[in-house]
């Protein structure tokens, strides 16, 4: 079987790979690009542990083919922290003990970021429905919802502060 040559961007880095036409984006990320943050929990798009974004859209990478991301921008959990600084969602997840075993955590973080990117002030219900495609078996979701809510509020506060600063400038 001949491979497909793909040029894409992952977490801002230009990346090239060759994969069989039937190989999933999840397998490409994990086995070819050494990005193991996305996990395979089901392989059928039911658990969200493999959540990534493709051109800003939240997807289950187990349902996307590697060949489909030619020219796209792929975002994974590995791209959330900037330099040594965790994304607010990441630090709130730790602060609120929103993870136990942690296997679902990368998927939740990617999904929560996709939510906050389009809705900076979600209600509890909006958080719960936005994360309904991500399964967690450890937490009962309680502390996850609280962490996302706290992150949204923190980001809003940070935005206000930097807004004031930029006005002053």
């Amino acid at each position: 079987m001949s491979g497909v040559h793909v040029s894409t961007t992952v977490n801002g880095d230009a990346v090239e790979f060759v994969c069989p036409p039937g190989e999933t984006l999840l397998d490409v990320l994990r086995n070819r690009l050494n990005l193991i943050g996305a996990k395979e929990g089901c392989g059928t798009g039911d658990c969200g542990a493999c959540s990534v974004t493709v051109d800003g859209r939240l997807v289950c990478s187990c349902l996307v083919l590697g060949a489909e991301v030619e020219g796209a921008k792929v975002g994974t959990v590995e791209g959330m922290a900037e330099g040594g600084e965790l994304h607010t969602l990441q630090s709130k997840f730790i602060e609120h003990a929103a993870l136990q075993c942690g296997i679902c955590t990368p998927g939740f973080l990617v999904a929560a970021k996709a939510l906050l990117d389009r809705n900076s002030d979600p209600s509890e219900e909006e958080i719960r429905y936005a994360l309904a495609g991500n399964l967690c078996r450890c937490t009962g979701y309680d502390k996850i919802v609280r962490a996302v809510d706290a992150a949204a509020k923190q980001l809003a506060t940070d935005a206000t502060k930097s807004g004031k600063k930029s006005k002053r400038r």
Binding site: E40, T76, E78, S91, I94, A97, L99, T105
Partner: peptide, 21 residues
């Protein structure tokens, strides 16, 4: 008390290595 877990950063950045990793 409720300090942050020591494996927290590994687990929110995708660095933690599970069975298939």
């Amino acid at each position: 008390t409720r300090p942050p877990r020591p494996d927290g950063v590994d687990k929110v950045t995708g660095r933690a290595k599970y069975g298939a990793d």
